Computed example of a mutant assay.
Amino acid sequence: MRTIAEINDKITKKSAVVCTVEELKARVAEAGISQTAKEVDVITTGTFEPMESSGAIINLGHTDPPIKIRSCWLDGVLAYSGFGAVDLYLGATQSVDYPSTLEAGDDPESKERGGGHVIEDLIAGKPIQLRAVGQVTDCYPRPSFETTITRDTINQFYLYNPRNLYQNFIVGVNGGDRPLYTYLGPLQPRLANAVYSNPGAISPLLNDPDLQLIGIGTRIFLGGGIGYVAWEGTQHFPLQKRLSNQTPIGPAATLALVGDAKQMNRRWVRGCYFKNYGPSLMLGVGLPLPVLHEEVVEKCAVQDKDLVAPIVDFSIPRRVRPTFGLVSYAQLKSGRIPIEGKQVRAAPLASIYLSRQVALELKQWIQEGKFTLSERVAAIPMDRSFLPQDRWGATIALE
Results as ranks from 00 to 15, higher is better:
residue 87 D to M: 05
residue 87 D to E: 15
residue 87 D to P: 02
residue 87 D to Q: 12
residue 88 L to A: 04
residue 89 Y to G: 00
residue 90 L to R: 05
residue 91 G to P: 03
residue 92 A to D: 05
residue 92 A to N: 01
residue 92 A to R: 00
residue 92 A to G: 09
residue 93 T to D: 01
residue 94 Q to C: 11
residue 95 S to V: 12
residue 96 V to S: 05
residue 96 V to R: 09
residue 97 D to P: 09
residue 98 Y to P: 01
residue 98 Y to C: 10
residue 98 Y to G: 07
residue 98 Y to Q: 12
residue 99 P to R: 08
residue 99 P to Q: 07
residue 100 S to V: 11
residue 100 S to C: 10
residue 100 S to G: 12
residue 101 T to V: 12
residue 101 T to D: 05
residue 102 L to S: 04
residue 103 E to Y: 13
residue 103 E to P: 13
residue 103 E to V: 10
residue 104 A to S: 15
residue 104 A to W: 07
residue 106 D to M: 09
residue 106 D to A: 08
residue 107 D to V: 13
residue 108 P to A: 05
residue 109 E to L: 13
residue 109 E to I: 05
residue 111 K to H: 14
residue 111 K to L: 10
residue 111 K to W: 03
residue 111 K to P: 02
residue 112 E to H: 11
residue 112 E to C: 11
residue 113 R to P: 03
residue 114 G to T: 08
residue 115 G to T: 05
residue 115 G to E: 00
residue 117 H to Y: 02
residue 117 H to L: 10
residue 117 H to G: 03
residue 117 H to T: 09
residue 117 H to K: 06
residue 118 V to F: 12
residue 119 I to K: 06
residue 120 E to G: 01
residue 120 E to T: 07
residue 120 E to N: 06
residue 120 E to F: 13
residue 121 D to A: 02
residue 121 D to M: 01
residue 122 L to N: 02
residue 122 L to F: 02
residue 123 I to Y: 04
residue 124 A to G: 11
residue 124 A to D: 08
residue 125 G to M: 15
residue 125 G to T: 06
residue 126 K to N: 10
residue 127 P to F: 04
residue 127 P to Q: 10
residue 127 P to H: 02
residue 128 I to M: 06
residue 128 I to K: 01
residue 128 I to L: 03
residue 128 I to N: 04
residue 129 Q to R: 15
residue 131 R to F: 10
residue 133 V to W: 12
residue 134 G to R: 07
residue 135 Q to A: 04
residue 135 Q to Y: 07
residue 136 V to G: 03
residue 136 V to A: 04
residue 137 T to C: 00
residue 137 T to A: 02
residue 137 T to Y: 00
residue 138 D to T: 09
residue 139 C to L: 15
residue 139 C to V: 04
residue 140 Y to T: 11
